[in-house]
């Protein structure tokens, strides 16, 4: 019988199947490398990574809801906390923190001190515009869209560009009311 109420990110992370961190990091590296070769333009690679993340996110949210037992969040603030404390811990094994709220509570920053995706990575001069972890922003965007929140996500800080942490700015554009796939009179 599953426990009632939300489970902590640590508890879920301890129970799911995991892969070796280096295998994971190098696999992601290989994907980025291949995209750079295929698409040639750094901008295009950013877009593609975001799209791949989005496709992951819209599926991942289901697994997240199934395993974490979280109930409906009352506001965007709680949503952000859940993503940072449970979501990131569950799937990446790192904890993020939420800061920099704006006055009306629609825009915040998720800060990652530690990011397994970027072990070994050093950007050469030719890819300076690359957001190496752009897949993460896509995942968050896709997942939130599935729970009817349209968001816009931008990277504020990036360790690969010499900053001291990773900072994702999440901006809530609008809450989409749930749409039913059928009409009442059909």
């Amino acid at each position: 019988m599953p426990p009632v109420g939300p489970r902590s990110g640590d508890a879920i992370f301890a129970n799911v199947e995991r892969v070796n961190a280096e295998l994971f990091t190098l696999t992601y590296g290989a994907i980025v490398r291949q995209l750079l070769t295929d698409l040639e333009e750094v901008e295009e690679v950013n877009k593609q990574l975001d799209q791949m993340g989005y496709n992951i996110g819209i599926r991942l949210i289901d697994e997240f809801l199934a395993k974490s037992n979280v109930s409906r969040c009352v506001d965007f603030k709680e949503t952000a906390e859940v993503i940072a404390k449970i979501g990131f811990k569950m799937f990446l094994g790192v904890t993020a923190s939420v800061t920099n709220w704006d006055a009306d509570g629609t825009c915040c920053s998720i800060v990652l001190e530690d990011n397994p995706l970027v072990d070994f990575v050093e950007l050469p001069d030719t890819c300076q515009g690359l957001y190496y972890c752009n897949i993460l922003s896509g995942v968050v965007r896709g997942a939130l869209e599935m729970v009817s929140m349209k968001t816009e996500i931008t990277w504020i800080r990036d360790m690969l560009r010499g900053d001291d942490a990773f900072e994702l700015q999440v901006k809530l554009l609008k809450q989409v009311p749930e749409e039913y796939p059928y009409k009442d009179d059909e």
């Binding site: 190098l26 992601y28 490398r33 070994f120 950007l123 050469p124």
Partner: peptide, 19 residues
């Protein structure tokens, strides 16, 4: 070895990293 693990480095190419 660390350089080789860097996905943006192509094995057998020139090492240009200033680091």
């Amino acid at each position: 070895i660390k350089t080789l693990l860097n996905p943006t480095y192509l094995p057998g190419s020139r090492i240009t990293s200033s680091h």
